[in-house]
């Protein structure tokens, strides 16, 4: 199972997905959000969805010096917080900027749970239950 961005052109920038991501762990706000919606240089040009695209061979895991990032079966990574030393290599390795850092400098990366999809009213996001391809 993995999160997919079906069509970013449909995004209106409501950011409901960002709030959903933090809410799923019982918090109100944005501090734990692993997805970001930002304009493409002004809202007149629309939005871009910044989130882990579930690489099958993720560069972020490759540069982790402590093996804190384990590759998921369907692509993307899972973090073992006990192993993480907060070096930030993973953040630098992600060309999408989809590795977010928390206040303790630990990475926050989408785990593809699909919770945000329920709060995307315009069909920008979807969950691919089968997919492991790197489209």
């Amino acid at each position: 199972m993995r999160l997919t961005v079906v069509d970013a052109e449909r995004c209106v920038g409501c950011q409901s997905c960002m709030f959903a991501c933090t809410r799923r762990i019982g918090k109100a706000g944005l501090s734990k959000s692993c997805i970001n919606i930002k304009s493409l240089g002004g809202m007149s040009k629309g939005f871009t969805v910044v989130v882990c695209r579930a690489c099958t061979d993720p560069p972020c895991a490759k540069v982790c010096p402590t093996d804190a990032l384990r590759v998921r079966k369907d692509g993307g990574v899972l973090l073992d917080p006990a192993k993480c030393v907060g070096c930030g290599n993973c953040k630098n390795a992600c060309v999408l900027d989809a590795v977010f850092m928390d206040t303790k400098n630990r990475p926050m990366i989408c785990i593809h749970c699909g919770y945000c999809v329920k709060y995307c009213p315009y069909g920008v996001l979807d969950i691919d239950k089968e997919g492991v391809t790197n489209a």
Binding site: V12, G13, C14, Q15, M43, P121
Partner: peptide
């Protein structure tokens, strides 16, 4: 040409 929303509002009433 486009519809936009305020932060944390799924309605998207802004018409461009």
């Amino acid at each position: 040409g486009r519809r936009l929303a305020c932060s944390h509002c799924p309605v998207a009433c802004i018409h461009i």
